[in-house]
């Protein structure tokens, strides 16, 4: 990642009533990537997001949006940001369209055409003239995104974007966010309390606990050296265990009529070929993608990530 970061969080500290809520947090987000922000409740996720968008002051350190400090040049920094902080709260007594007109007037260079373009983009065309109070939560989320995208930002910040959505809505949202990052080159910051969801959506995940950044983990880059737990549903079990004995670093384990063995990614097809050669019936092979969660549990000291 040699690109210029879209968002730089530099040694940011937040003190509220003498209590250090955020302690020297450091990270950068680059164009075209989805960055997941994870942490237990009260870890300071929302506080950090509120500091990025200028809703909360920064006690120490600085946040740069495309090189503009949010502290000293709020207007220039906010020009590049589209955000939904927590719930997509809109003016309920106005129509979806008037809500967008409202936010268009607050930004430069957003004309009627752009409003219609965004409406088309989020698929709200049929209901845009209805009052927002008649919208479902999913539609409000979409209107929220429309509002955030109006002024063509470089950075999109979504706090709990899938909160309250049904599975289909979550899938749609995920697809949508990936699209914005990959095709439009936006830097997207997402916070969520669902780790499994973050894995599907994000390129990198940062873990925050008690105001400290514990680490940033790459998600999709599965290096060939990295091992994962693989379970084989095979018959007969004992024979298969013997076949797989010399593979992997640890001995294969038999559990729940399955063989569980730690393998690298490259070893999985080799193991399958070996089993097939010995005429063992293979009913299924599953790679347990628990490594990320395990990493986080390790990072947060075994505490549950909520």
């Amino acid at each position: 990642m040699q690109k210029q970061p879209a968002v730089e969080i530099k040694q940011v500290t937040k003190v509220i009533r003498g209590r250090k809520i955020i302690d020297r947090v450091n990270f950068s987000i680059y164009p075209g990537e989805v960055f997941g922000f994870l942490g237990p409740n009260g870890a300071g996720k929302t506080t950090t997001i509120r500091m990025i968008v200028g809703l909360m002051g920064i006690t120490d350190g600085d946040i740069l949006i495309k090189g503009n400090s949010i502290k000293t040049s709020h207007g220039a920094a906010m020009k590049h940001i589209g955000a939904i902080v927590e719930n997509p709260e809109m003016y309920k007594y106005l129509s979806g369209y008037l809500n967008l007109v409202h936010f268009a007037r607050m930004s430069d260079g957003v004309d009627k055409e752009r409003i219609n373009e965004v409406i088309e983009l989020v698929g709200l065309k049929n209901r845009i003239n209805d009052k927002v109070k008649t919208y479902s939560l999913g539609m409000r989320q979409r209107l929220g995104i429309a509002q955030a995208l109006l002024h063509r930002p470089d950075v999109l910040i979504l706090d709990e974007p899938t909160n309250g959505l049904d599975p289909a809505g979550i899938r749609e949202m995920r697809h949508y966010i990936r699209n914005l990052a990959e095709k439009e080159g936006l830097a997207v910051i997402v916070s969520s309390h669902l780790l499994s969801e973050m894995e599907l959506m994000c390129d990198r995940i940062g873990v925050l606990q008690q105001g400290k950044m514990l680490g940033v983990q790459q998600v999709h880059e599965m290096s060939s050296e990295q091992t994962q737990m693989v379970s084989f549903q095979v018959e007969p079990l004992e024979q298969a265990a013997i076949v797989l004995r010399d593979m992997g670093s640890k001995k294969p384990e038999i559990k729940d009529k399955q063989i569980i063995i730690e393998l690298t990614r490259d070893e999985i097809p080799a193991a399958a070929a070996k089993l097939a050669k010995e005429a063992i019936s293979i009913y299924g092979i599953q790679a347990e993608t628990k490594t990320l969660e395990d990493t986080f549990l390790e990072l947060t000291g075994g505490k549950e990530i909520v």
Partner: peptide, 14 residues
């Protein structure tokens, strides 16, 4: 009360 202040203050106007 409605939370719309967050949208109002996260735009370019000071």
């Amino acid at each position: 009360g409605t939370g719309t202040i967050k949208l109002l203050l996260t735009k370019t106007p000071s």
